[in-house]
Design a protein around this nucleic acid. Structure first.
Lengths: 237, 237, 237, 237
DNA sequence: CATGAATGAGAATTCATTCAT
DNA sequence: CATGAATGAATTCTCATTCAT
């Protein structure tokens, strides 16, 4: 259960991130250069520690799982004190949530910009898939959190995880709907199809994370691409 | 972490199950009818309690998740005592593992027999999918354990879960390989394809478990079936 | 703040006490002597530990104050484990509350029976006062809890403490009201008078607890008695 | 427990107060008017902040109790920083002690001057009582600290509180002794009587603080006055 | 076999205090 | 002087597991 001091963790976490962002980019013209320098130093230090904690948390959660990871472990790994962590985060959940959001944001933004850059509608799906596999491949520990630990981390996270799942499915669904509308593919149940696509990618990546196969995640791309294309009736010439 | 007295819980559990099975089916001819009657009563009672515990565990794990479920909760729910549970199971992990195996066995056996009963090679996949969806639909709480709680339940279960995932993928892979060999479908990377298929089904079912959509899981069957068939190049006339 | 598992601590505590009492006195006729003996042994052991914890708590709370007393301290002092304490009490508050109720009950019951035994209306007040001073004198550590620690122990206890204060004032008020009705004394504001009487006794006892003066609390009796009697217009001949 | 660097907090606080007082009243003739002006401004600012902290502390301690009040809370309420508070006070205890002294001083000085202004010996007690009730009524939060939180705030404060209690009892005792000496009242144990008087007033006021009865504390005056007067043998004509 | 009392190693979280900037 | 980041000891409470009865 979330405690009363932090009853809407997501918004809080976003606030934290926003606040951090704003702080970092603020340059109050009313303070002199010397002062500004000092403030920047402080912010830089603060930011450094913030991300040191996040990195440590990624490692620890990924190694032990959410429940088995102790805040003490994260403190140790991040070279901070327990109190230090609680200065930056209201509780353990919040750290995990920030990490989840981080990975989700990373994946989404990369996939979206890759699709935006690709003019050919037919190829949009391909580049998105490729980008996602690359992103997963480049963040193996975060990927572990995202795909392995997150669902089972506790009731508290289930809703948020389903929202995240839904948002990715939505991305896919929009793409499929557009393809249907433009006549590129025949009508189909895009609701189920998008979930299935997401699940297919998920499982291939999860397998890679947990068993190391295929050695390079990207190797799965061609086969996966063809599978997905075919599943909606796109046939290779 | 597994403690030293029980460092391969899975084998232990199988031993337990075997032992139990043996006990139940033994009829030592050297004891008289009266005695035998008593023993059977005892066995029946024992078996009853054993499954009461499993049922309770299903409920409790599904409601609270593996880590948050206390052995006390299971004792309460199963109308036993903590000590009673520890008579039947060496530890908490073992209970969870038995449930996992139970679900996996259920799915596998039903899918296998459905496929065995279907002579038409092309339709074997369909009946397997349909059977699995039906089985999931009929055991929502076990399904939750299997798909949501199991992965994140802790490092201890990851290996076993991947084995289970692998065994299902293998089932699918064998089917696809056979279809390729028989020339029904064109050659493809069945390794990836089987993982993708499994993942696709997983996600659709997980979505149903966590969000209740679609209301009846079986509704997803036609769309999913077409998607999977097409993905391997089988085209509806 | 009281946590959700124990949101009406008083009733819970009373239930605990009642349950204990009932358990102790139950002799289920359906079990044999041997069994009964065993059960009694268990109960006796249980009761012993329960009161060992209470005794330890009295000492520790009295020495360190409610807030500064750690459950660990009580565990140490009672030769139990922390877990053992939490087996008998749901939380730290509950231990303190039981102690408070115990002292309040002791005082009230002794005062009431002393008054009941004294036929002379005029002397009822005297014996009550004397009995209370004796009771306080005989339980110095409990008295400390009751008069010094309890009020400041935290917001959670304030309401209950005022109820206890009120109940004692009520005792006094009833006595005064009766005296007024019977014409023994002239009408007066018994509401204020009873609070004042209670406060007067409180302060004298508190002074004794904290400074050791007078050496024997009972020495204060004659002066206090005369003071209180006079305050309501009863003049010594 | 007091830490070694500040093992006699009370004296330290008095030193602080003295130092502050000296600072405020110092006008070093060797500095020019401009400088002096600056210093005065600074002193004024300093004094302002000092009392802002005290006010905030009154509120916070009264709301949460001594132990549960965090220095952070006081910092927030006083619009200062934690560091700022530690500039003015050596530790949390000191803040509480200053508040206690403040209330005690207020009560004592008002009572004393009221008595000094009243020439009629018989009426001195009345005006003292009335003044005290008025003072309590005018500072409800401070009163809460003084009567409810102080005793249970921790072992550290017990001695000082008993000194304060004693000093008030002394005031009363001196008055009673004088009355005895002057033959106004018959000899009595003024030691006990003064404690009882103090306790009687305490309880009536505590009841008001915690339960809100009587609505106006001053309403209790007539009844209380008569009670106390009679208790020492002064009878209304 | 069943019970449930007992244990004790953690777990998350709080907060007075310090001190570099 | 003021700030607030950092520390880490201390606290309450939980729970898997054991074992005497």
């Amino acid at each position: 259960m979330l405690d009363s001091k932090f009853n809407d963790p997501f918004n809080k976490v976003l606030l934290i991130l926003n606040a951090l962002f704003v702080t970092i980019n603020t340059t109050d013209e009313s303070v002199g250069f010397r002062e500004r320098r000092k403030i920047l130093d402080k912010q830089a230090k603060s930011q450094l520690r913030f991300s040191r904690i996040l990195d440590a948390a990624t490692t620890v959660f990924s190694q032990k799982g959410y429940k088995d990871a102790a805040v003490d472990d994260i403190a140790l790994e991040s070279q901070t004190s327990k109190g230090g962590i609680y200065f930056y985060f209201p509780n353990k959940q919040a750290i995990f949530l920030v990490l989840l959001e981080k990975m989700a944001g990373l994946l989404r933004s990369r996939a979206e910009s890759a699709m935006a850059e690709e003019p050919n509608v037919l190829k949009k799906g391909d580049v998105a898939l490729q980008t996602m596999l690359q992103t997963f491949a480049g963040h193996r520990t975060l990927t572990r959190l995202f795909l392995v630990e997150a669902l089972g981390a506790g009731r508290e996270f289930n809703d948020r995880m389903m929202e995240i799942h839904a948002s990715f499915s939505k991305l896919i669904k929009d793409y499929l709907d557009e393809a249907v509308l433009s006549g590129t593919i025949a009508p189909l149940n895009t609701e189920i199809a998008s979930a299935a696509w997401f699940g297919a990618v998920n499982e291939v990546v999860t397998r890679w994370v947990l068993t190391g196969q295929p050695a390079q995640l990207e190797e799965a791309y061609p086969a996966l691409r063809e599978l997905l294309r075919r599943s909606i009736g796109l046939v290779e010439k």
